[in-house]
């Protein structure tokens, strides 16, 4: 089967943005499985990956239902190419070292937690149900990655240096979390999605609390990278999808 073209109504597009971000981030976390700094962390990172994968599946299933073209979660995950992916750029950056993985997880979950909290009151009942489950998962993700951020920021000289490097790389990708385009505004107006501007105070508060304890500086908001939510990605996503979609592309139309 060739690459599919999804009819992206504002709701479908919004669901794909959330699903893609969860799937791509989950994929990056799953790359640690068997390679983590200690066994306890192999298990912890796999748990994070499984939570996000579960969220992605629920969101894809709902997106497919809304689109009404008879597609499945796997069609959406495996048969769209990079330009059709709608995840935020931060999620797709390569795995990096443990500092990078932890900090990315923290910055994303510090956003996801207030997002799902607000989305649990969505006018869209199905999204609200997905959000109610995701909210609890995100709360634990903030706790796990937040506690590690504190330990690595205020650990050894090396761990601190690695956290500062990760912070420098990741910060310019935080702006995309709070963008709102025409599709978003339509969903906000309909009471389906929360306005990202309303999530900022909670995100800032979490980041400040953890960074203060981690002795990490909150970087100034300079130039922010953007594009993932409209399909303009980094070079990394194409490679990730080439691996992830390998079997579906090499043996089209098979059941696995």
């Amino acid at each position: 089967m060739t690459t599919i073209a999804v009819a992206e109504t504002p709701l479908v597009l919004s669901l794909l943005r959330l699903a893609d971000t969860a799937l791509v981030h989950s994929h990056r976390l799953s790359e640690w499985c068997g390679h983590a700094p200690m066994i306890e962390e192999d298990l912890a990172l796999a748990n994070l990956a499984l939570d996000l994968l579960g969220q992605a599946r629920a969101l894809y299933a709902y997106a497919a239902e809304v689109e009404g073209a008879g597609r499945t979660e796997d069609d959406l995950a495996y048969l769209r190419d990079a330009p059709q992916y709608r995840n935020v750029l931060m999620a797709e950056l390569p795995r990096g070292d443990f500092a990078f993985t932890i900090l990315r997880g923290f910055l994303l979950s510090a956003w996801a937690h207030p997002f799902w909290q607000a989305a649990a009151r969505s006018a869209d009942a199905q999204l609200a149900a997905i959000a109610a489950k995701a909210e609890k998962e995100a709360a634990y993700h903030v706790r796990h990655t937040g506690e590690w951020t504190i330990r690595l920021g205020d650990g050894t000289e090396e761990s601190r240096r690695r956290m500062l490097t990760a912070l420098e790389t990741l910060w310019p990708y935080t702006g995309e979390l709070f963008e709102a385009d025409a599709a978003d505004r339509a969903m906000i107006a309909a009471g389906v999605l929360p306005d990202p501007a309303t999530l900022r105070p909670a995100w800032e508060a979490t980041v400040t609390r953890v960074f203060d304890e981690a002795l990490l500086p909150r970087p100034a908001d300079g130039w922010m990278q953007t594009g993932g939510r409209s399909g303009r990605h980094t070079e990394h996503l194409g490679h990730m999808l080439a691996v992830m979609q390998h079997l579906q592309r090499a043996y089209p139309g098979c059941t696995w």
Binding site: M38, E40, L43, A44, N47, Y140, R143, H144, E147, R151
Partner: peptide, 20 residues
């Protein structure tokens, strides 16, 4: 049992290991 540097991380490791 689990290995962890401190009590909070031990609690999280216990959660991630024994309550899946």
């Amino acid at each position: 049992s689990v290995h962890a540097a401190d009590a909070e991380m031990a609690l999280q490791a216990a959660r991630d290991t024994y309550t899946r």
